[in-house]
Simulated scan of single mutants.
Amino acid sequence: MFAPLVLLVRSWMGTKEFNRFRGQAIALHAQLISRVCDRLGLDRNYRQNMIRLARDNGKRLGLLA
């Protein structure tokens, strides 16, 4: 779904810069998931499952193209 947009942005930014940007975005998203789980009192296993679910959804949507 988003793969063409991701590829366009990668070609515009350059692969090295794009990968750094994507890594920062993934890290921020994982931190957000961790904060939500901490606030709700959810355990570490649940948090890891949520992060894996986010990764798998990103792959399905083409965000990790």
Rank of each mutant, 00 (worst) to 15 (best):
R10E: 04
Y46G: 09
Y46Q: 13
C37R: 04
S11I: 07
Q48T: 05
L42G: 03
K59F: 15
L42V: 10
G14T: 03
I51R: 05
N19R: 06
G41F: 05
G14M: 00
R39K: 09
F18H: 00
G14P: 01
L7S: 05
D38P: 02
R10D: 01
V6A: 05
G62R: 07
A25D: 11
R52D: 12
A65S: 03
R52E: 14
A25W: 09
N49Q: 10
V6G: 03
E17C: 10
E17P: 09
I51E: 14
A30N: 07
I33F: 12
L8K: 11
R55N: 10
L53F: 06
R22H: 09
R55D: 06
A54F: 05
S34K: 08
K59D: 13
V6H: 04
H29T: 11
G23I: 14
R20L: 10
L5S: 13
G62E: 07
H29A: 03
Q24R: 15
F18Q: 01
I26D: 13
F18S: 01
R55I: 10
L64W: 12
N19C: 12
F2E: 03
R10K: 05
N19E: 12
G23F: 08
R52L: 11
L42I: 05
Q48W: 11
L40Y: 09
L61Y: 07
C37H: 06
A25S: 12
L40R: 11
T15H: 06
A54G: 08
A65D: 06
M50A: 11
L7P: 06
F2W: 15
L28C: 07
R55F: 15
L5K: 09
R52T: 09
L61W: 08
P4K: 00
V36T: 12
T15N: 06
R10P: 03
F2H: 06
F21P: 00
T15M: 02
W12N: 02
H29G: 11
G14E: 01
L64Y: 13
A54T: 06
R35D: 11
F18M: 02
L28D: 07
F21H: 08
G58F: 00
G14N: 04
K59V: 09
Q24G: 13
D43W: 02
A54I: 10
M1Y: 14
N19G: 09
I26E: 05
Q24W: 13
Q48G: 03
K16Q: 05
R60W: 11
A54D: 07
L32A: 07
Y46W: 13
A27M: 14
D43V: 01
K16T: 14
D43T: 01
M1H: 13
N57L: 10
D56G: 08
V6D: 07
C37T: 13
R22A: 04
K59E: 08
Q48L: 12
R47A: 01
F21W: 05
R22C: 14
D56H: 07
L40M: 10
G41I: 04
R10Y: 02
